[in-house]
């Protein structure tokens, strides 16, 4: 069977859920080979084995993480030259997409980004993408070189398939050219204790209608165990950090439940949440376009509805 490379997404050896999804998808296409860059491969091993990695290629050259993405793309090119994979899967985040872009040029290969599903096809993987603000679904395939696919979070339900992969240390050489963009400072974001936006099953988002007070949005989110999101209007007003923006220039999310409070539903916001399974809105304007999308909508003041709903949820849950 052919090898499918999966670039492991992790922080200091703690493997992110997206990697379990990529490994699950890789098993549909061939034998998953995990590529682990940085420190902590031993910590990552159990999670990689649980989702079926047949081998783990570990790259620990410190230069790989000091500079921006270019060294990682060079490293993957060298791994690919040895393993000769039939496809390469990378998480669809900012870094993943840039690595994939560089790799596509290096390997003379076609690139598909932001896949929401990947299936095995006759002539290689067939991807599903959601385009034009979620208004169209597109099926595509790579017709040249080694298919490189970046995959969005929640594209697959992780399925365990226990293996005990061996770790193979791999030496890479990084060119001077790849070392030209330096990270000079890095301020980690404070953890909120809430689920991560792109991975959450439930998201409660607030917009301009919050008037700057995200308290009711956060309280309702916490009662549901949800992540908190925001519209661009709320972010631009400085009410909530940009990392939580949902939409075209923020995150694309596809949770089981999306609650929009005080958000009008502009096309750019829809672009980031339209594919959510169930959509709920609270808005005081019954004409707000967000109501065109909803499964359930409340026309009312979020400052009244959210606290009352939070209380009711808490009561039912206890």
């Amino acid at each position: 069977m052919s090898n499918v490379l999966v670039l492991v997404d992790h922080t200091a050896g703690k493997v992110r859920k997206t990697t379990a999804e990529l490994l699950t998808i890789a098993r549909r296409l061939g034998e998953p080979v995990a590529v682990f860059i940085g420190e902590g491969v031993q910590d990552a091993l159990p999670a990689l084995g649980q989702y079926g990695a047949t081998k783990v290629v570990a790259l620990t050259n410190p230069e790989l993480t000091q500079f921006l993405v270019a060294p990682k793309a060079e490293a993957l090119q060298q791994v690919a030259a040895k393993i000769e994979p039939s496809a390469i899967l990378i998480s669809s985040n900012a870094e993943g997409k840039e690595i994939a872009a560089r790799l596509a040029v290096k390997l003379d290969s076609g690139l598909i980004t932001d896949a929401v599903d990947v299936a095995a096809g006759d002539g290689g993987p067939v991807t599903t993408q959601s385009v034009f603000a979620g208004n169209y679904t597109v099926q595509a395939k790579v017709t040249h070189g080694t298919p490189i696919i970046t995959v969005k979070p929640n594209a697959a339900t992780p399925e365990a398939a226990e293996t005990s992969p061996e770790v193979e240390e791999f030496d890479v050489s990084i060119s001077d050219l790849a070392k030209t963009a330096r990270i000079t400072e890095s301020k980690p974001r404070e953890a909120t204790g809430r689920p991560e936006l792109t991975e959450a099953a439930i998201i409660v988002s607030g917009g301009r209608g919050t008037g700057g007070d995200f308290g009711p949005v956060e309280a309702f989110a916490d009662s549901l165990g949800a992540a908190v999101g925001a519209s661009r209007a709320a972010v631009d007003s400085g009410w909530y950090p940009h990392a939580y923006q949902v939409g075209q220039t923020g995150k694309t999310v596809s949770p089981q439940l999306y609650v929009a409070a005080g958000i009008s539903g502009a096309i750019q916001h829809r672009a980031g949440m339209q594919t959510s399974k169930t959509i709920v809105a609270i808005n005081k304007d019954e004409e707000a376009p967000i109501f065109e999308l909803v499964d359930f909508g409340v026309v009312g003041d979020l400052h009244k509805v959210l606290p009352a709903a939070t209380e009711e949820v808490t009561k039912r849950k206890s």
């Binding site: 609270i282 909803v294 499964d295 026309v299 009244k304």
Partner: peptide
């Protein structure tokens, strides 16, 4: 098309939950 309720009588939250 989804269900849309008005909160005029204050029952919106209960219906939502």
């Amino acid at each position: 098309a989804g269900t849309i309720v008005a909160d005029e009588d204050g029952s919106g939250a209960a219906q939502l939950v």
